[in-house]
Simulated scan of single mutants.
Amino acid sequence: MSKPNANPPLSPPAPTSQVPSSVAAPKKKKPYPFWLGGVAATIAASITHPLDLTKVRLQASGDKRMLASMQKTVRTAGVRGLFDGISGTWMRQMSYSMCRFWAYEESKKLLDATSPSAPAWKLGLAGSMAGGIAGLVGNPGEIVMVRLQGDFAKPPEKRFNYKHCFDALFRMVREEGTSSLARGVGPNVFRAVLMNASQLASYDFFKATLLATPYFEDNIYCHFTASFAAGTVATTVCSPADVLKSRIMNASGPGSSSTLATIRTALATEGPLFVFKGWVPAWMRLQPTTILIFLTLEQLKRGVDWTRGKGWDVL
């Protein structure tokens, strides 16, 4: 009988995983250019300018109906009249809108609200912060836009007759003083806070909510639905401040820029619903504008990603 082996053969050692001594952290995605929002807003506003023009004239004049106001514009100034003051629109978008998109993204970083699961209150707060900053920065462009758009709705003797946005800016400073650039800044900042909290924040909220369902992917259908909802919310929330802003900025003369005086006069002559005057053209203008802004912005972002993917790191 053979003796059992006192030293049985050792089993081969279990393979060990090769773990590198240092694992490279994933490369942080480069932020998008800060001016993308301004470009997207300028493109959208150029397309919807006739509706914005009609909204301002309804708010600042005695016109009652949107179609009647548009017909009056075409009758008195031709089809080109529907694009009166478009240089003011460009100035406003490349100051106010560029600033608000940049400030919104920076505010989200500050509040740690960049993830898709960020709570709605953080998004709203980031939008409000961005609106306050952009409302101050963009106030001169806002005044120029409103005055250029509303000029032909006035009697000839009361018109400003600005040639373009820069002529308006220089003449305001020369004829009314530097303080004229701050006319209506209170209602404008208030309206900007409401707009960004209700438009930018609600778009992010609706987009994240839709992507959390099994029915939507991150594509144009999701972007369209989220922007449609955001546009309706923003129109309703911003209408009161928008009406006051337009009336104060269109006023001229000492004491005509008083917010309380404007409210008292409008309440006495038109009733409390005056704050929603022009809601339909405002919705018809803001809705396609909101949709166009976000669809354009998303496509611009994809264009930037595409160029970076090709190695053309110019943006």
Results as ranks from 00 to 15, higher is better:
E175T: 09
V173T: 10
K163N: 06
L200V: 07
Q199N: 07
R183A: 12
R183Y: 05
F166A: 10
Q199H: 00
A234H: 06
V189I: 14
S180D: 03
R171P: 02
P240L: 05
I220R: 14
A229L: 11
K245E: 15
T209W: 11
S198N: 08
I248H: 06
K207D: 02
Y203I: 07
L211N: 04
A201C: 01
V243W: 07
V243F: 02
E175V: 10
K207F: 06
N219D: 11
F228K: 01
P187N: 03
S227K: 03
L169M: 08
L211T: 11
L211P: 02
M249K: 13
S239G: 00
N219E: 11
L181F: 03
T213V: 01
S180T: 02
V193E: 04
G177R: 07
H223K: 12
L211F: 04
T236Q: 13
R171A: 05
A226L: 01
V189G: 06
S202W: 00
T232L: 15
K245L: 14
A201V: 00
G184V: 07
S202T: 07
L210C: 00
F205R: 14
A182S: 11
P214Q: 05
Y221H: 13
A230S: 05
A212I: 07
N219P: 00
A230Y: 00
E175K: 07
A201K: 05
S227T: 05
N219Y: 02
F190P: 12
V185E: 06
R247H: 00
H164N: 15
P214H: 03
F190D: 14
K245M: 15
C222M: 08
A192P: 08
F206Y: 15
F224S: 12
P240R: 03
H223N: 13
G186E: 14
R183W: 10
A182Y: 05
F160C: 14
T178Q: 12
E217D: 15
M195A: 15
V193I: 14
Y215M: 14
S202A: 10
S180R: 01
T213Q: 05
Y221A: 14
P187D: 00
T236D: 02
S198Q: 09
K207A: 08
V233A: 11
T225Y: 05
A197D: 06
I220E: 13
I220G: 13
V189Q: 05
M195L: 15
P240F: 03
T213P: 00
T236Y: 12
L200Y: 09
Y162K: 06
E176V: 06
D167V: 09
V189S: 10
S239N: 13
R174N: 13
M172A: 03
A208E: 01
Y203W: 10
S246G: 08
K163V: 12
R247N: 02
T209Q: 12
R174W: 14
N161C: 10
T209R: 11
E217Y: 14
A212D: 06
C238W: 04
P214V: 06
T209Y: 10
M195F: 15
T213W: 01
I220M: 14
P187W: 01
T235G: 08
G177F: 08
P240E: 10
K207W: 00
S179R: 12
V193Y: 03
A208D: 03
F205A: 12
A234N: 13
L169I: 08
F190M: 15
V237I: 11
P240Q: 04
P214R: 08
A229D: 11
T236M: 13
